[in-house]
């Protein structure tokens, strides 16, 4: 059995053929290196992210997360729940907090869960993978498996919104969290200093419904990374990763910019630094290829 065991909530976009399947692959790689075992919550469902509210009222949305937590309580009673997706983590932790704070909502949610023969107890911790890395493994622990330090690469640590607010990582500030910069430095690369857009919003799900407004936000996020001398952007969030990566050509067309900067997950960076293959690091999942990382992985 692995040293660290967690009840894992992978989320819809991590599934095979989905938009952040590359995040899951690279996460599995770093878990192998760090002796972490992620035990998937059986038959988990969508958390409704932060956009299900048009159709789903408060109680149905709480019930979605409560079902996942209840399933985890059954299958992995002694393990914290861990999510890699910012929205999954946020929705689950919010539901857990709100139900524990409000006995009426708790009773109503459990009444609904009964229809699926489930009960929510609510005594679990809901954690983000980044918390696991920083709190349970620690920067020293993260350093240990490094075989190929990412020397000579300048990287903008784009934390984004939902990994940072309203909960964030313990001990970090909302306005200027530094854990991602520290992680970049731990891996041997150089973080962009004073990256002023590190906690700015990429538009989230509104990239789909308000593309022009959201692309204007992404333009600033990328521009600021370039201004800081970055060769790539790293992020913990699936929505940030995709929004910052895949619309660059459309943004270039509209604004006359010449953006072509890779946007990668921290787990991809770590996998490469740990000496793993391009495939294990999910570098083949890059729409804008991270050539420098490919070169290091091929060495």
């Amino acid at each position: 059995m692995a040293k660290h065991n967690y009840s894992f909530y992978p989320g819809c976009s991590s599934q095979k053929g989905a938009s952040s399947s590359n995040q899951l692959r690279s996460t599995q790689t770093i878990c192998e290196e760090l002796d972490i075992q992620l035990n998937e919550i059986p038959d988990w469902n969508c958390c409704s992210a932060s956009i299900g509210y048009a159709g789903g009222g408060q109680l149905p949305r709480l019930a979605l997360s409560a079902r996942n937590i209840a399933l985890s309580e059954q299958a992995h009673p002694d393990q914290d729940i861990v999510a890699t997706c910012a929205a999954c983590w946020l929705a689950t932790r919010e539901a857990n907090d709100r139900l524990n704070e409000n006995s009426t909502l708790m009773a109503e949610t459990n009444k609904a869960l009964k229809e699926g023969s489930l009960t929510f107890k609510g005594n679990k911790k809901i954690r983000h993978m980044v918390e696991v890395l920083i709190e349970d493994i620690g920067y020293e622990g993260i350093k240990k498996p490094i075989k190929k330090p990412l020397e000579g690469i300048k990287i903008a640590g784009y934390v984004g919104c939902q990994t940072n607010r309203p909960f964030g990582i313990n001990g970090e500030s909302f306005e200027n969290p530094v854990y991602l910069d520290k992680l970049i430095a731990t891996l041997g690369a150089e973080p962009v200093e004073d990256y002023d857009k590190k906690v700015s919003c990429c538009g989230g799900a509104l990239m789909f419904s308000e593309p022009e407004k959201s692309q204007a936000l992404v333009k600033d996020i990328i521009e600021s990374a370039y201004d800081g001398g970055a060769e790539m952007i790293v992020t913990p969030c699936p929505v940030c990763q995709m929004n910052v990566e895949v619309y660059q050509e459309q943004i270039n067309k509209k604004y006359g910019t010449k953006f072509n900067i890779p946007s990668v997950y921290y787990s991809t960076l770590m996998s490469v630094a740990y000496g793993r293959s391009a495939k294990d690091a999910a570098l083949d999942g890059q729409v804008i290829r991270a050539i420098k990382l490919e070169e290091i992985a091929a060495k």
Partner: peptide, 11 residues
């Protein structure tokens, strides 16, 4: 537009 998208997401 966001109303429509959010409803589609839920459905």
């Amino acid at each position: 537009q966001t109303k429509k998208f959010a409803q589609k997401f839920w459905d």
